[in-house]
Amino acid sequence: MQNTSPLNTASMSVSENETLIELKNINKWFGGFHALKDISLTVNKGERIVLCGPSGSGKSTLIRCINHLEAIKDGTITVAGKEMANDAKSIDSIRREVGMVFQSFNLFPHLKIIDNCSLALRRVKGMQRDEAEVIARKYLDRVHILEQADKYPAQLSGGQQQRVAIARALCMEPKVMLFDEPTSALDPEMVKEVLDTMIGLAQDGMTMICVTHEMGFARKVANRVLFMADGQVLEEAAPDEFFSAPKHERAKAFLGEILAHN
């Protein structure tokens, strides 16, 4: 493993050495705004990465590039051995390996919870309805929300909806889960149930990349914390090291502000 610069390469060794995601020299522009600047990142199987940083730093954009919700200008993205090309088939094959949970849940409001979870199994994996529902129920049970299966999303609390969103992603049995500020839109009393679900996933060995400012969560489950600002990874460290002794000035300032409100 190369260890050129600790600032823009991810090269901490973890117990399992199978590379799952490899981003090489990613550049992303929004018009004239350089959102991601030459970012490289390697994520091994079973790793839990927490991305944090001030808003507008590019952390959400970065994970949205991994499943091509955002197109990159240059660089390469490899997920589970497949390099992303700019065609629908290649993008689709990568999306099948990647689950995503959004800040605003993005459940399908016109479908019951069970259908939210089973739809992609039927449409993408070609399963029959009953077969798909068995799997959907399994994952709804795993996020402790099976009893809500026949309700519509709007009948559930925010925390419940986010757990459904996690179950919906898990149904596709992805190799990696991306979390884009999964607790930022929740009322405070609902944050814990979602974080507990994510901790459970981590304990089961799921590879995860989480954009979050939940430091308790980061300390508990992350192998690495990446601090981003201005489209660059400025610091990368083990969580304890990062939170107790951040090196970069921007990271210190950022943590100071977060701590001031905790």
Binding site: N67, H68, L69, D92, R95, R96, V98, G99, M100, F102, S104, F105, N106, L107, F108, L119, A120, R123, V124, R168, A169, M172
Partner: peptide, 17 residues
Amino acid sequence: PRGQTEAANALSLGYVS
């Protein structure tokens, strides 16, 4: 909301679905 399309894309649902 754009999130509906994004969620469908993230689940790798095709255009027709």
